[in-house]
Design a protein around this nucleic acid. Structure first.
Length: 254
DNA sequence: AACAAGGTCAACCGCGTTATC
DNA sequence: AGATAACGCGGTTGACCTTGT
């Protein structure tokens, strides 16, 4: 499915990653983090460029990545966010725990683009002319709220709660921040509430062990927090938006 | 059964942005 | 303040897979 491995003119390996390379990268990052992608391949004993290592880690090896089919709620949210923000895949990915910008982008081009186009066509047939992108007023509030409510229902059944004051996810049975184990949930737990809870609790325990004191924990690079603990709340203060707030008891992602 | 077309997705490339010197 | 390095994002590619004819 992917380019076969080859060595380029500079002696840098490219193309598909082998199991051995993956293991090297994982074990290096688990031990040292990734403070410097440029230096990482050399230090980890990989004949790759830093950029390639970063990409492999971010899109494939990183913990908590969700694989497999997109839920209708996720797809709906992608469609909404894309209409709002355009091709800002990283922005969209922030709202979808466990999905990477690359995955979302691929999914968009392979399926959602067409659906979006069809929907637009239907809309215009029904409502008459109405065009333009990045137009928030285009979407009736109730429509967006509906999508978000569906997502909230999933979260509720999972016993995971977003605590605005501490900007963290908690499980119902404990107050500790928890990294959302989307990978486990997606592939192993099959999303049943009981299994979901069990995995979430296990992850919470793991996180407890891990984060005795997060800020003094050695070898943890700063951005690991946002990578491991979903969702990343866009606190960059930029104009991109407030990201999450509550509306009539529902969580809104913007 | 064989082929073609379209779909999927990991990976690469180029460029803009941010950080550091 | 300017130059350079490093990072991150979005677009694109290419090979395998699936479906239709």
């Amino acid at each position: 499915m992917v380019r076969g491995p080859f060595i380029d003119a500079n002696g840098v390996k490219k193309g598909a990653w082998s199991e051995e390379e993956d293991q090297k990268l994982i074990s290096y990052i688990q031990t040292h983090g990734h403070p410097n992608w440029r230096q990482l391949p050399k230090l980890a004993g990989l004949a790759r460029c830093g950029k390639s290592c970063r990409l492999r880690w971010m899109n494939y090896l990183r913990p908590n990545l969700k694989r497999g089919n997109y839920t209708p709620q996720e797809e709906e949210l992608i469609l909404k966010l894309h209409e709002q923000h355009g091709n800002k895949w990283s922005l969209i990915a922030e709202k979808l725990p466990g999905r990477t910008d690359n995955h979302i982008k691929n999914h968009w081009h392979s399926q959602l683009k067409r659906r979006s186009r069809d929907r637009g066509r239907n809309d215009s047939e029904v409502k008459g002319k109405k065009t333009g992108r990045n137009n928030a007023t285009k979407h009736p509030e109730s429509d967006i709220v509906k999508v978000v409510n569906e997502l909230n229902n999933i979260l509720e059944s999972s016993s995971l709660n977003w605590t605005e004051t501490t900007s963290s996810w908690t499980t119902a049975d404990q107050d500790n921040s928890v990294s959302l184990p989307s990978n486990d949930i997606g592939s192993t737990a099959k999303n049943s509430p009981e299994e979901y809870n069990s995995v979430a609790s296990r992850e919470a325990s793991r996180f407890q062990e891990f984060s005795g004191d997060f800020w003094t924990e050695p070898f943890i690079s700063e951005d690991m927090y946002s990578e491991y603990c979903y969702p990343h709340i866009g606190g960059d203060g930029g104009s991109a938006g407030g990201d999450i707030f509550s509306y009539d008891g529902a969580l809104l992602f913007f």
